[in-house]
Amino acid sequence: MISIISEPKNDVYRRLVDLAFDLCDEFILVVHKKYYSDLNDNAKFLLEKLNDYLIEMKEQSEWAGTKLLGHTAYIYHYHTSPEAREIVKKVSNSLYSWMYPDLPEDLSFYKNGKPWLVNTAHEEQSFIFSEDKSEIDKIMNIKGLKIRL
C-alpha cells in the first residue's frame, strides 16, 4: 500500500488522475443519501454530465475506505473513458476537494474490480494499492506527488 502524504493539487492532481484513468477501468463517486437533495447545482450538473459513462448506481453503507453506521450513500460507478477523464480533471484541481456540497465525494479508482486509488477526502487520506513494479515506478515518477511506501 502506498500512502499519499500531501494532497495532490493542480498539475500533480491532473497527472495522478491521468495515471489512474490509464491503469484503471472504473471510478466511483459518492453521494450520501441524507445529503442528496441538498447537493449544489455544480454537483448535480457533474452527475448529469457523467451520466453517459455510468455503469451503475448502488445504495450502500460501505465502499473502499469507508463504512457508514446507520445510514447509506449512493455509489456511482463509471467507466474510465477519455471524455470522463477530461470532465474529472476540469471540475476540480485537487483530490480532497471531492466533498459535499460542491462535488460528489471521494473520487476513487478501481482496477479489475479491486480498489486502486482510495480517497477519503474529508479525512484527507488517500492510498494506492498496487504491487506492480511498473505501476509503482509510474506513481513515483509523478513530479511533486508526496508518497510513503
Rank of each mutant, 00 (worst) to 15 (best):
S3K: 11
S3Y: 13
S3M: 06
I5G: 00
I5Q: 03
P8G: 08
N10K: 15
N10H: 14
N10M: 13
V12L: 08
R14T: 14
D22A: 13
L29Y: 12
Y36E: 07
S37L: 10
N42C: 10
N42W: 10
N42Q: 14
E48P: 01
K49Q: 15
L50Q: 07
Y53T: 04
L54P: 03
L54G: 02
E56H: 05
K58V: 07
E59C: 02
Q60S: 09
S61T: 09
E62Y: 12
W63F: 06
T66P: 02
K67A: 11
L69S: 14
G70L: 02
H71P: 00
A73S: 15
A73M: 11
Y78N: 08
A84M: 05
I87T: 15
V88N: 04
K90I: 11
S92R: 01
N93I: 14
Y100N: 08
D106I: 01
L107R: 02
K114H: 03
K114G: 00
P115H: 04
W116E: 01
H122L: 13
E124N: 08
S126T: 08
F127R: 02
F127L: 05
I136C: 02
D137A: 14
K143N: 15
K143C: 08
K146W: 07
K146Y: 07
R148Y: 10
R148Q: 13
